[in-house]
Amino acid sequence: MQIDFPKLGKELSQALIAALKSDSAKIKALAISEGEQLAFALTRIGGLLARREIDAEEAAILARIQRNASEAVLASLAEVSRVAAGKAIKAAIKSVLTSSLGQSPIAVILKAADA
């Protein structure tokens, strides 16, 4: 299954903005940027997996790396609380598991990693 990268980026960005519950323009801008970065990375991981350049275990590790990077970026904002950054990433990924990522192999891996 081909991942719709622009759609995934938009959904992740919107989910991050909603989860962070802030009117700050700075937070919204960073949430959009981070949503796009995460979408890019998940699409690339999906591609590597589809081409069998990596296996499911490696894909899960690479996805965790990207989650940690996004959490570090969001937690670096003074307005974002310690807990909110991690929760926002989790909520954003959960939201795309049933939409943009659908039944793609990367969705299956993300679900298993979160279980």
Partner: peptide
Amino acid sequence: APGAIALNAQAIARASLAI
């Protein structure tokens, strides 16, 4: 895989530069 190397490098850059 080269693609995995690029992703890891980008993730570290993203996080460290944000801090």
